[in-house]
Amino acid sequence: MMADQTIQKINRLLFYAILIFIVTVFFFPFMWVAFTAFQDAVNAGAVPPDLLAPPTLDNFRQVFEEGGFISCMINSTIVVALTLTANLIVSLPAAYVIARNRQNWMMFLILFMQMAPWITLLLPWYIIFKKLGLYDTYIGLVLSNLTFMIPFTIWLMLGFFEDVPVEVEEAAWLDGCSHLGTFVRIVVPLVKGGIITITTLGFMFCWNIFLFPLVLSGYGTKTLPVFVYGFMDDNQLDFGPLAAASLLTMLPVIIFVLINQKYFRQGIAFGGGK
């Protein structure tokens, strides 16, 4: 009896010990970056770290003074907002039509469009965008983001639309609703969960994307990830400001996703991620 209880206790202890180890491994970089971002030039690179060193905001000041940080943040915000809005307007109706007329070849195309490597799209885009004057414009960046958002959105929304009973739509038609009216007033409110999921994941994809803006944005529309990359080249080995810049870049997306955690997890579990 006693022995059983002891074994159980040890088991529990062991379980939590392993748990804490796992958390440490995956969460450690975040603790490090949050710590380092508040250290002065001497302490930031110190090995071993001085945990009791007084925190400072100098690094953040330096990031803001570097110039471009704020405008890049604004660029990122604009591109993300425009992409997500455009994506819903373009993808939801398409997903709805495909959900009602599902065919294998459509499904394959959508899958393949999600699979295609971005670098292969980027080569022709670069030439086309330059020709059409889309290089270094918000529209260009939004279009590039739409290319992965549209297939992803359609793929994820299909299930949501298929769960809307056809009879509910038919009832709306008989009630005197047009096709567009039925879609906007009846179908879209019923797939709200999917829309939040898409917006959450889309915020993450579009905020984090690096390769497209790296090539397609110039001085006028540079986004945060591209800024951080450039900032790294300018401040080699200056850990404090680099950590502060990293922290500031990822903070908005982390906050946004954590607010919609439930939907994020749903989306991840569904798509197996990108």
Binding site: P165, E167, V168, E170, A171, A172, W173, L174, D175
Partner: peptide, 18 residues
């Protein structure tokens, strides 16, 4: 359908859930 002025009662009710 919308122009026919006809009403229909469905087997699964088809109420607007929202």
């Amino acid at each position: 359908p919308k122009k026919r002025d006809i009403a229909m009662v469905f087997q699964n009710y088809a109420l607007y859930p929202h």
